[in-house]
């Protein structure tokens, strides 16, 4: 059975950890997870993604495989790429594992795509918001129509009641991607249920 517990790691004094550069041509991302993601001149580094459409950019952020697959399955990509600007609040694979059982996730991705679309819309805002914007704002409205409280959380941004950004400020062709550590929306938690061993 896949059971995972998550602890939130908050790094107070970690300003723009490891991912910044003095060069104005590079893209700065920030957050405690950034140093574990492609960086510098590695394939998939933040600068290399800055002009990529959302579906391509997501394929390089290693901790977003569940979100990336779900977005493809949802068939929302053309709609998102047609928007002038978007912000994607993308839960990490660990966040998905803590939220949904394997069976539940397959159900959403294969059979219940309406629910999947609603879930994904709860993670997307139709304007481009930087980390600073999220920290400064009181709330944002996601594409599913939900108003989500946001604000500061040390050097990161808090999203809703549980989530914080863990690597923020990826730029993509039409907006921003922030990796977050909890799944948003109102679906029930099913992690730990069902038969998900080998």
């Amino acid at each position: 059975m896949r059971t995972r517990l998550l602890a939130v790691v908050v790094v107070a004094a970690l300003a723009l950890a490891g991912c910044t550069s003095d060069s104005s041509t590079t893209t700065a991302v920030s957050g405690p997870l950034c140093d574990e993601l492609p960086k510098g001149d590695e394939p998939g580094n933040p600068t290399a993604l800055a002009s990529e459409p959302v579906d391509q950019a997501l394929q390089w952020i290693t901790v977003l495989t569940t979100f990336e697959g779900a977005l493809r399955a949802s068939e929302l990509v053309p709609e998102l790429e047609g928007k002038k600007a978007i912000t994607v609040l993308a839960p990490s694979d660990d966040a998905f594992m803590a939220k949904f059982s394997q069976d539940n996730l397959d159900e959403l991705m294969i059979k219940d795509k309406d629910t999947l679309r609603t879930l994904l819309r709860a993670h997307i805002v139709d304007r481009s918001l930087s980390l600073a914007d999220l920290r400064d704002a009181d709330s944002v409205t996601t594409l599913d129509g939900t108003t989500v409280k946001v604000g500061e959380a040390d050097k990161m941004a808090r999203i809703g009641d549980e989530a914080t950004t863990v690597c923020a400020d990826y730029r993509i062709a039409n907006g921003r991607v922030h990796v977050i550590n909890h799944v948003l929306g109102n679906l029930p938690t099913t992690a730990g249920q069902g038969d998900s061993g080998h």
């Binding site: 602890a7 790691v9 107070a12 490891g18 550590n181």
Partner: peptide, 21 residues
């Protein structure tokens, strides 16, 4: 001191902390 805050109590940390200082 004020450098690092870690919330424990779970068998997992989501990420290893790894930074310059």
């Amino acid at each position: 001191g004020t450098d690092v805050l870690i919330k424990t109590g779970s068998p997992h940390l989501e990420v290893p902390l790894n930074h310059r200082r």
